[in-house]
Design a protein around this nucleic acid. Sequence first.
DNA 1: ACCTGAACACCGTTCAAGT
DNA 2: ACCTGAACACCGTTCAAGT
Lengths: 185, 185
Amino acid sequence: MRADARKNREHLLAVAGAAISEQGVEVSLRDIARRADVGLATLLRHFPTREALLDALLRTGFDELTARAEELETSEAPGDALVAWLRDCVGWTTEYRGATVLMAAAIEDAESALHASCVTLRAAGARLLTRAQAAGVARGDLDGADLFALVAMLAWLGDQPSLTPRADHLFDVVATALLTDEGSG
Amino acid sequence: MRADARKNREHLLAVAGAAISEQGVEVSLRDIARRADVGLATLLRHFPTREALLDALLRTGFDELTARAEELETSEAPGDALVAWLRDCVGWTTEYRGATVLMAAAIEDAESALHASCVTLRAAGARLLTRAQAAGVARGDLDGADLFALVAMLAWLGDQPSLTPRADHLFDVVATALLTDEGSG
DNA sequence: ACCTGAACACCGTTCAAGT
DNA sequence: ACCTGAACACCGTTCAAGT
């Protein structure tokens, strides 16, 4: 990549990150280009879709969450590790209002730029869940896809200003339900 | 209202209902007007905002759910009544993909055309919850706003095609958590 | 009273023309 | 290689002009 292109790309990512944290992931791409003093077509050239732009922005977070899952797998008790990781996932998405909907769409759309990251994240969660189930501290009738859906719906609460005040409490309610051994076996 | 105006209004509601059940609540208003063989400005004259249109469409369902809550309050055991009503609420929204987001926004926006209906619905749920708590069969650390948020997040799963297969199962997980007596008192 | 076409300011997509 | 203005087909809003 040419030097000016790389500079544009990095500047666009910085501006997009700021714009999204202010207005959410549905912010106008034209606005981002304007704020970056770049043509809209240039933004589209670097990131052909909104998902591609979001993927570039979220990748660091995705990688950190995956690494965090691996770390928790060895350092914490199975139940605590699972809940701690879920909390990290839900908390992380608060920086990217609206991203949950795009992630939910991406998990089953192999064409989406976000697909691979979402699948990796789901797999990391599934490993923590399986470990907790093997230890007999988590419901046995859930799998990685259920866990992904649970994280998504709890994260979604953080996207809705009117529901956000309840999000922490409802997280605990759901986490408690997860750690019951009902349905196991 | 003039006869032709009433006819337009009713026809628009029928067309809008069909369009929304096909494409969700974010369907283009221009499309609805086109399909109703009416000018876009006429649609906006009858329903000045998307929320106003949606409110007219959802009002029947809102009223039925409120009546259903009152009926369940006398006919069923407190815990069963609560869960049955939650199931009805979540199931009802599947006809209106995307409505959950608008309802979540409306519950705290007194200017929204949907506000009054949402508040009424929340109050109906709160009564069922209080009754179940008094009978000692529901968690005591939840209120009507928590319940509204729980319904919203479970209904939201039905809006996301990739998560919908898990919705019924996760409803049961959450319902079980609700009926635990942990946190009561 | 009620309806509507047209103008408006947006949006994301595409591409020929520039450097 | 990389960038961009301009044209395109959309969107919801507004309003003067029609019946």
